[in-house]
């Protein structure tokens, strides 16, 4: 009789479990881990960055030569006007003495304006063209200056940097600062936007004694989205509060604080519209 080896049973050195089960369990756990780590690092980074002295923030901002990206020098009259408004608003918002606002004009059709590190504001022609009066312009500037006042740019940079460091594990160099980007639009959270809106309303009331013209800013944004046929993102996924909510919040705040919703609107200076030609 021929010798016969016994065939060993299967599944001792290997697992019978369907590989997809391991895959899905691990994937869910990994995503949860990344989510929690990002949250903790993000909140922690934002909190830490908020503790940075303003002078340190200005130093970080000075690493970049911002003026070469702007069109401020070509439009001195307009730039001067924007700067004078910014100074006026800074005073009204009681900015700390070492916090300086610099308004930069961008000759581009983009409908946008944003605040970034070191108190630098960027205002695009596309948005300025659509503003009907000074009150709305002050709302815009007041909103962006409020971001600087509450140190939102450095806080959101802090979030990005800490998360970035964690993700690149170890290569914590200046590249990360570059990636987070000074000139890119820093994403502010919804709470930050609401805080800035509130401050902008307060500024309007302080400077003009009424908040008329303020809600118009968000109507402009809304109309622009309508004309571009772009749907607003659902509130859950958006960092900005919904346009309608922001418009309504002007009425609500006016009622709460007993402010007037109507008043004399200050026209924009004559050279304003010509400046865009």
């Amino acid at each position: 009789m021929e010798y016969q080896n016994k065939q060993p049973p299967e599944g001792i050195n290997t697992s019978k479990q369907h590989p997809f089960k391991e895959f899905s369990t691990l994937l869910i756990a990994a995503l949860a881990l990344v989510f929690i780590a990002t949250l903790v690092l993000g909140v922690g980074g934002g909190w830490l960055a908020g503790k940075l002295p303003i002078s340190a923030e200005n130093k970080i901002a000075a690493l970049y030569d911002i003026t070469q990206h702007t069109d401020t020098a070509e439009h001195p009259k307009l730039a001067k006007y924007l700067q004078s408004l910014a100074d006026k608003i800074s005073k009204a918002q009681n900015l700390p003495p070492d916090m300086h606002i610099t308004a930069h004009y961008m000759n581009s059709p983009t409908v946008n304006a944003f605040a970034t590190l070191g108190g630098n504001l960027f205002i695009y022609r596309g948005l300025l063209e659509r503003l009907p009066n000074e009150n709305t312009l002050v709302t815009l500037l007041g909103h962006e200056i409020a971001h600087v006042k509450y140190r939102h740019p450095i806080k959101s940079l802090g979030r990005g940097v800490l998360v970035g460091i964690a993700m690149s594990t170890g290569s914590a160099n200046a590249q990360i600062l570059g990636d987070a980007g000074l000139l890119t639009v820093l994403k502010f959270s919804r709470d930050m936007e609401k805080q800035a809106d509130k401050e902008a309303m307060q500024t309007l009331q302080t400077l003009y004694g009424h908040i008329d013209g303020g809600a118009k800013l968000f109507k402009i944004f809304h109309e622009m989205r309508d004309s571009m046929d772009a749907d607003e993102p659902a509130e859950l996924f958006s960092t900005h509060p919904l346009d309608q909510d922001r418009i309504d919040s002007f009425t609500q705040t006016a009622k709460q604080k007993g402010w007037s919703e109507t008043g004399n609107l200050t026209p924009l200076p004559d050279f304003f519209e010509k400046a865009f030609e």
Binding site: N13, T14, P19, E22, F23, L26, A29, A30
Partner: peptide, 25 residues
Amino acid sequence: YFKAFVAGLRNLFGGKVRSYETLLD
């Protein structure tokens, strides 16, 4: 890629790398 992906995820948590067990077996 599937096995490598699962093994990569497994690196985060430790434990038996089941996807490679069959490969080596």
